[in-house]
Design a protein around this nucleic acid. Sequence first.
DNA 1: CTGAAAGCGCTTACAG
DNA 2: CTGAAAGCGCTTACAG
Lengths: 349, 349
Amino acid sequence: MNTKSRRFPSDGRVTGTQVAALAKVDAAVVSKILKEDPTLRVSPDTRKRVMDAIQQLGYRPNYAAQRLRSSRRIGAVGLIIPNFSNPAFAEIVHGAEIAALKRKVALFVSSTSELTTPLELIIDLVASGRVDALLIAGGSSSETIEINEYLSARNFPFLFLNRQSVGIRRSLFLDDEHAISLLVDHLVELGHKKIYNIAGKSSMETGKRRQNAFKKAITKVGLTFSPDLIVEEEYSVIGGQRGFQEIFKRKPKATAIVVSEFNMAVGALNAARKANVMVPEDLSMVAFNNLEFASLLNPSLTTVGLQLQHLGEEGLNLLLLKEPDEEIYQTVSKSAELFLRESSKSNRK
Amino acid sequence: MNTKSRRFPSDGRVTGTQVAALAKVDAAVVSKILKEDPTLRVSPDTRKRVMDAIQQLGYRPNYAAQRLRSSRRIGAVGLIIPNFSNPAFAEIVHGAEIAALKRKVALFVSSTSELTTPLELIIDLVASGRVDALLIAGGSSSETIEINEYLSARNFPFLFLNRQSVGIRRSLFLDDEHAISLLVDHLVELGHKKIYNIAGKSSMETGKRRQNAFKKAITKVGLTFSPDLIVEEEYSVIGGQRGFQEIFKRKPKATAIVVSEFNMAVGALNAARKANVMVPEDLSMVAFNNLEFASLLNPSLTTVGLQLQHLGEEGLNLLLLKEPDEEIYQTVSKSAELFLRESSKSNRK
DNA sequence: CTGAAAGCGCTTACAG
DNA sequence: CTGAAAGCGCTTACAG
């Protein structure tokens, strides 16, 4: 049974030692060539022998061993999202994947779902050494500060995506303020003056931020802001339905609604239909996030596209670029865009 | 600078040696207690000291070291999906997450997207030792056999999700045949006789399988099958639009359409609206996959719910349960269910 | 029955 | 400049 050489693994795995043996060099040389170690001097001939051996055997360094020996390089990045069913997160993930592939790091996506708390998940991932850096998207504000503290204390590389509060040491965020103003400006150009907002909860960080942005945008165009213009709801289809029903009752009658999140917009459109309010004839509706589905709704939905894919892509790049002790606090480089569709229409006769 | 003890890592990480020192035992004892090694005899008192020390220091075994030393236990499972934007995959992922949490293994989701081929991704994941087992969902048939060969040759634990072809050694699949028959039976009960099918490409494994199932279901209820009843398209919104347009031209005129995938159904509904065909008044439409969105469409869509979440959950459990050399070829235990909504209606006067 | 020692596959500080 | 040796944090076969 055990007549095989003990030097090599019995299954298909290939080790650096095997490569070294084939190329007739020391295992250290293989490692150094692969890492492009500038202190290494080898003849082109030797280098070629080693590269050929790597090729021939299909060698890839064992990640566990590499990781165990040196904690320097980031080889695997974890991306944490609240769940996999929200297509907005799918866009962020996709951006991060593009960057990960370019930078040759592995990307692992995990969701907190209802099953674990984000902090628990993070502690597990970090303490067990499964990932070398962490990108954290979405989720409620409640644990953000604790996560920030935990990771900072360990000097572990991390970056929050679209989280903008005091105390957060590293975050890349979207320009929600600009996005809201694009929507409001668009409605004002169409002649709307009674513009309401179905917003996220002010207990959520983006909810609060977008509420403030709405107020600012309304004021900027010379309309009068009142807290009555905002209805606070959870980011969900049901939340959007309730939001519409509430605004439907309010005076003065809305001619347009800005919805601060995509699922809420789907719900609001549904509730409008049930209430026999025609969109866009009776009411214009515009919303956040230009997801694929926006053009498939009936009516198709005018949206503002935050740069979600860019958020993922730039986020991962930043994470790899910056030292873990550096602060990061900046906005995604590409700004929001407006996508005009059927759901918004002139209010002039 | 280097006055600190060199025995312990300088950052926050906690090692088994530290736990052992605190509990005044050997590091091996810590390992054995944690693994519940049955050969270990320790006094309850010692066990408690060790458990307390683990608790106090927040110790979690270093995954890389553990993995490097022993290749037995599955600690991290990789789940490969084609992309993150299709909500059908989100359901599978969610099921797998539930199981992963229960079984205390880490779950890492990666997509092949347009960027890599599945085989490339798998080779990288396996050869670098980043995951200990693999769940593979969706994707085209083309590389399936190569993946099957590659992993089998290495005795690496893997399981295909919903892939059912000869040569595949390990797969857990859905009962597509039963699902189609639920849809067809439902339409027949409503009095429909001219039932068409917008199906996936027969070059795709599930496409072919569902086409055969449609034929069988039609025949079973006593209707006459003809190849003209099936239009083959890609699984996408555009594919569904084209599929509807094609069926719209055919004689005899369809009174009902079975759509074999969700995105295609969204496209078909859209195309019907553009062609001024009223659903369900002029035409009934029923489709695969009971995703959240089905009830939000206008009209809401009658669907059959495959047990996608179960597929993920049972798949992960099977993967952990079976030895890598055992064959797996079975159907998900829970059968499909019908969800009646607005899009299907009686054809009788 | 128990604990000390060897070794997994790498990388890098260091001796020659 | 170069290559052999030490060691990362675990686990387990093995000696006592």
